[in-house]
Design a protein around this nucleic acid. Structure first.
Lengths: 300, 300
DNA sequence: ACAATTATCTGACTAAAGTCAGCTATCATG
DNA sequence: CATGATAGCTGACTTTAGTCAGATAATTGT
């Protein structure tokens, strides 16, 4: 149901349209600068989407929204240029992993520099007003990305969920003082995070997974929150709060009355969120080696 | 010579790149919605660039950055669709003027509505945070359009000029200790700010007024600078200086040899600008109740 | 073991965008 | 009135992007 609020001010609409024009011009200029490296835009975008660390082809395809035939041809082109190598994914040999070669890394770095240089030019032309502009850009980006992020239940073994979990583990390994090895942790089995025992929720931004949370149950009235993670690119939008609220709602629907969670002291934002949203710190209720804090929340 | 200032913070660059991603998606979505009218994007853009009032072909071509052959073909297509008519420019019969037909006007309106609807959707999803977002978008747009801000003479009674003046009065009311009531002030009559007595200049960023200055004359060799104002989103770019320089140039062209102005002590940035640009503080030359400083500058 | 699904590749297309050389008509200038 | 510049038109291209219908191989569910 649109048009519930007051009718938008035409002057405000004009302001937004001016913004759109300003920004499409900027985007066009960036595209044009990308063209300067003697490669069509599609190929340049594909290379950048593969990134330094390499990625599986289907992820790139989903991000760029390309037809599989076109994607295949672009990769063939990049391969012929000696910029990427393709190898079957050992985990699923239908998939292929694209990795940049040394030359590919150089090209990616060159494209990054082009982006950076535009950003620098913008910043340096501003002087003392730069912080205000950056804050404004953050606000706009957050607003534009906000309504595109939706929360959906997924199977914890589905590729999107596994991608989130892999990124989550990698981040824990970076952030925990002692590193992180999932095999030493109380890793929940997938069936405990599937209905009717539990649930696994993904935050999807335009189809891309940008966050997750697990609800691990055992059929009884007490369940645990696990694996709360937000992609770096999606932080600062209150997404963790939305995911937690969705997990609580799902738990209620599954007849769960008490939620628990354990967490590591390195995860300060998460701990702050739990405290802000009605979780009470309680004594350790398990022997999770990576946990220093335990929380509980009643769902009534 | 770039790289003079301090090296930009990589985190700031990352923020800009996040902004770019958010915004190019938005632009892509708008393009996709334009495609829904059964016309390739190039033709749709050309039609919208022609606009309601029609335009000469070379102006459209310059705006869209198209090859003359391509432009010609796009126009031929629009003509065949019955959306535009082409006629030689009476002033220079090499040029051609494109004007929308009635059907063309309807199509332009339809494209406008598509843009408007996206803007409305964004606004309505925001509620009370809308003003902050709009201000942020203005700031970003102004920064990106920085080099496209142009100064044009306007009638002081035109809507864009009145909008600037209203914003100026509102700001004075906020900033002056005693508030501001325009009826108590020495408000210049509009004819004194029109050629040949004076002038009224607007700073236009992509069509939106973002600043103004008035030159109030009485036909003699002495004129006053009035109503210097820059929209908050456009500050910090040296626009006030550009507007003042343009006003001085206009004054010279009108045969004025001495400029004066009065101002309030609350307008510190303006006073600093006057001091920096060759204005000399002089004793009060009028009884403006809101003024504490009077300046004069000779134009030789 | 079997069918269904999934990821990718290939060939054969089309549409859109863009380039380029040469043409004509008009205009500005000496 | 010749000269050169300018604006636009046309035909003959190329490149880029994108679509679609199979083919193939690997995986999943039963």
């Amino acid at each position: 149901m649109p048009n519930t609020g007051p009718a938008p001010d035409p002057a405000d609409i004009a302001r937004i349209r001016r913004f759109n024009r300003a920004v499409t011009r900027e985007a066009g200029a960036l595209d044009a600068s990308f063209l300067g490296r003697g490669r069509p835009l599609g190929a340049a975008r594909a290379l950048c989407a593969i990134g330094r660390d390499g990625r599986d082809v289907s992820a790139v395809r989903a991000e760029l929204g390309l037809d599989s035939g076109l994607m295949s041809r672009l990769l063939r082109g990049l391969e012929a240029e000696g910029l990427v190598t393709l190898a079957p994914d050992p985990a699923d040999r239908r998939r292929r992993l694209a990795r940049p070669t040394a030359a590919g890394l150089r090209e990616i770095a060159a494209y990054d520099r082009l982006s950076d240089r535009r950003a620098e030019a913008l910043l340096s032309g501003l002087g003392r007003t730069a912080p205000a502009l950056l804050a404004a850009m953050d606000l706009v980006a957050t607003a534009l990305l906000h309504d595109r992020t939706e929360i959906a239940e997924a199977d914890p073994a589905a590729p999107a969920a596994r991608a989130c979990l892999a990124a989550y583990y990698a981040e824990l390994a970076r952030r925990f003082e002692a590193g992180f090895d999932v095999t030493l942790s109380r890793d929940p089995a997938a069936p405990d995070m599937r209905p009717p025992r539990g649930s696994f929720l993904l935050a999807l931004s335009d189809g891309q997974p940008v966050g997750c949370v697990g609800l691990k149950g055992d059929g009884g009235p007490v369940a645990e929150i696990k694996r709360l993670w937000i992609a770096p690119s999606a932080r600062g939008q209150g997404l963790a709060r939305r995911l937690m609220a969705a997990a609580e709602a799902r738990a209620r629907a599954l007849g769960i009355t008490t939620l628990r969670l354990d967490t590591n002291r390195a995860l300060a934002e998460a701990i702050a969120l739990y405290r802000r949203t009605g979780w009470a710190e309680v004594p350790a209720f398990n022997d999770e080696p990576y946990a220093q804090h335990w929380f509980e929340k009643g769902l009534d």
